[in-house]
Amino acid sequence: MQKITPFLWFDNQVEEAIIFYVSIFKNAKVGKVARFGDAGPGPKGGVMAATFQLEGMEFTALNGGPRYQFNEAISFVVKCEEQDEIDEYWERLSEGGSTGRCGWLKDKFGISWQIVPSILAPMLVDPEPQKTQRVTEAYLQMTKIDIAELRRAYEGQAVAS
């Protein structure tokens, strides 16, 4: 049982968002869906709240109206092993949204994601400060993270511009 569950407040796009996320992640599924009845406050039959899972993590989503908006203060980190995995998540999640620096993007619903290679954290804490400095400098110049460029920086090879 997952002790802590992210709870996402949408205006009225829960169903669309869940379908979107479940289509992107390979290990994903829709859970329970609660719909509005005669008492409202949303349209009868519309989704009030739902649960879904992405890569074994359960989420709850609510159609709560326009009162609250997502921002970068909270983001979801997707750790990737290979460049093709980074590329796929980057392209799919940023579709209809926007991209930022250092592997950050916002999806079309306003949720922030960080698409990063799993090798980045160990590189940033390497005991050799020259390596961490080179990786940091390379990383800060990137929008979508390029694993080959990080490896070149780590090894002290020239980084492509």
Rank of each mutant, 00 (worst) to 15 (best):
G65Q: 14
S161L: 10
E91I: 03
I24T: 12
G40L: 07
F52W: 04
I24E: 07
E81T: 15
F36W: 15
F20P: 07
I119N: 08
T132K: 15
M123F: 14
R35D: 01
E91P: 04
Q69A: 14
G65K: 12
T60P: 05
G96D: 04
F70S: 06
I24K: 13
M48A: 14
Y89F: 12
D126K: 04
Q114N: 04
G156Y: 06
Q13T: 15
Y89G: 01
D38K: 13
E149L: 15
P129N: 00
L62T: 11
N12S: 13
E81R: 14
L124T: 08
E81F: 08
W90T: 01
V14R: 05
E128K: 11
P6G: 11
P129K: 04
P66L: 07
N12R: 14
G110E: 03
Q130A: 09
E15C: 02
K106Y: 02
W104D: 00
R92W: 02
F52S: 08
I119G: 05
P127Q: 09
V125K: 09
K26A: 09
K29N: 12
F36A: 12
V116T: 11
K29A: 11
Q2C: 03
Q141K: 15
L120P: 02
F36C: 13
G45H: 13
V30C: 08
E55R: 13
E81C: 09
W113F: 07
R151V: 11
Q130K: 12
M48K: 12
K131A: 04
E85V: 04
E137A: 14
Q53M: 12
A61Q: 06
E16Q: 14
G110C: 01
V22T: 15
Y154T: 03
E137Q: 12
K29L: 07
Q114M: 03
S75D: 01
I4F: 15
M123G: 05
N63K: 13
A39R: 12
A158Y: 01
K44T: 12
G100F: 04
G97D: 01
E58F: 02
K32C: 10
K44D: 13
D107F: 09
V33E: 10
D84E: 12
D126S: 09
